[in-house]
Design a protein around this nucleic acid. Structure first.
Ligand SMILES: [Mn+2]
Ligand SMILES: [Mn+2]
Ligand SMILES: [Zn+2]
Ligand SMILES: [Zn+2]
Lengths: 137, 137
DNA sequence: TATTTAATGCAACACTGTTGCAAAGTTTAA
DNA sequence: TTAAACTTTGCAACAGTGTTGCATTAAATA
């Protein structure tokens, strides 16, 4: 994805495309996997943790990325589909490879509906499967 | 559950029933919900964080409790069934109430099998549903 | 251009989880 | 029963993650 495209994308989501945000979002898109704050921090030494943190938050608030808590100790972020509103119907399984630490969206596996016992209200869900990915097998 | 019963339980799992371990395990059983290290620390001021931490680890290693990462920021621990070996067939959904912060095993909801794409190996899974529980509704 | 508003960097902080090591307690073997 | 060996606990320190207030810099607007 070109920088121009990234900027258009940010604008379409009402996030002003600053240099830092463009950089962070582009890195997420290009990586093709979910990245943590620490992952991003390593990739561009010069940028402040808090700046990346705030960029991620603004992406999250505007349904551009969704958080994935894969149990690795730090929350990772994956890019959403264009039309995502991060509600129940956009939710999908995530796969965490315990060998390489990669976390990937499995958009082909939507989170199955669950009939909760009476009195429980369903807001959101996380379904993480861990194991070994094809690269590591 | 009486202390005697707790002790028998620990012994049956090859964990020496020290005073601290008995106390921690009893608290978990009696609470009827998943508790974090911090939760336990608060309940008995006098006991060291690291002691509780190590107790939890030995329970986990011996399939007496299973960790639940509900996204609240700290891992919680819930007591396993007697015959649990913490494998795929023992896994169930957990419910996290965003109002009261309570996390509960939903043993009536086993985690559904998912057909992973070729090349992926399934080891374990976490399926957390968050929302509002009956007490808070 | 001057003023207002927004983004960034810096520094500090709270909290979680984890470990090495010494002290206290328990088990075992002489 | 006493000494030696082993286990558990407490203490203290530490690394990592996430988060915030505030000053500085950059961008937008009047
Ligand atoms: Mn995803
Ligand atoms: Mn459970
Ligand atoms: Zn892998
Ligand atoms: Zn509740």
């Amino acid at each position: 994805m070109t920088n121009k495209e990234i900027e258009k994308k940010l604008e379409s989501k009402n996030v002003k495309p600053t240099a830092m945000r463009t950089l962070v979002y582009k890195t997420l898109v290009d990586s093709g996997k979910a990245l943590s704050l620490a992952d991003l921090e390593i990739q561009f030494e010069k940028v402040e943790r808090s700046t990346i943190f705030r960029a991620l938050k603004s992406f999250e608030d505007n349904f551009m990325v969704h958080p994935v808590d894969d149990g690795s100790g730090s929350v990772k972020y994956a890019v959403c589909d264009d039309d995502c509103t991060c509600n129940i119907h956009d939710l999908h399984v995530h796969f965490y490879c315990t060998r390489c630490g990669r976390t990937r969206c499995m958009k082909e596996l939507p989170i199955p509906e669950m009939k909760l016992p009476a009195g429980y209200t369903y807001r959101k869900a996380q379904f993480i499967i861990s194991g070994v990915c094809p690269r590591c097998d």
